[in-house]
Amino acid sequence: MQASDKGHASASLNGENLRIGIVQARFNADITQSLAQACITELRALGVDPAHIRHVTVPGALEVPLALQAMADSEDYDALVALGCIIRGETYHFELVANESGAAVTRITLDYATPIANAILTVENEQQAWARTEEKGRDAARVAVEMANLMKELQ
């Protein structure tokens, strides 16, 4: 960082030399696979080497944090991405899954000082989910790359 930067960190979207881990929930698989495809396509467009992208799947959103924790614990990744889709139903289960998975992802981010782009969709219906998959998948990739670079800059 140059002295002229006056302490302002830049938002670098250069994915070269970054290692990214992706954990995708298989529940609502068509939607989460679309999220994953958009994310991986964007990571590659940002310069992340496909050999440096590890993509694993788990049953559902509540299982995502455990896989993220294992990846963070390995210290093999500069950033992680959480992908899933929780669609509101007629019971309280929606709130439970949305709240618990979100809180766990945040806890892992802070406990391991590892950036995690949380793209676990929480929507009212399938139509809302489909309307968000492309954009949220790409956003997750950009957040992961930007935060990985920022963390390197801050250390």
Score class of each variant (00 low, 15 high):
H8P: 06
T122S: 14
A148T: 13
K152S: 04
A82C: 07
A113Y: 09
A79R: 00
A67W: 11
A67S: 15
T114N: 03
F27I: 00
K152L: 01
R132Q: 06
P115D: 00
D111C: 05
Q2A: 15
L150D: 05
G84H: 00
G60M: 07
N125W: 00
R132S: 04
I20S: 05
N17P: 03
E146P: 02
Q128H: 15
F94M: 07
F94W: 06
R88P: 13
N14F: 01
L66H: 12
E100N: 08
C85W: 12
N125Q: 00
A70I: 07
A144F: 01
E75C: 09
M151S: 12
G84Y: 00
A29T: 13
T122Y: 04
E100R: 09
M1G: 14
I87D: 10
E90F: 06
A148L: 14
A82S: 13
I116F: 00
R107E: 11
H52S: 15
I31E: 01
A67Q: 14
E75R: 14
S101N: 03
M147H: 11
L96A: 05
G60P: 05
K6G: 06
S4L: 14
D111P: 06
H93Q: 06
D49L: 08
L154A: 07
I116D: 00
N17W: 02
P115S: 00
H55M: 12
P50G: 09
S34C: 10
T106N: 08
D76Q: 09
A51N: 13
P50W: 08
N14K: 03
R19L: 09
V64N: 03
G21K: 10
G15I: 07
E95K: 05
Q127M: 07
T133V: 13
N99W: 08
S12R: 04
G21H: 09
S12D: 02
N125H: 02
E16F: 04
V23P: 01
A61Y: 06
E146H: 03
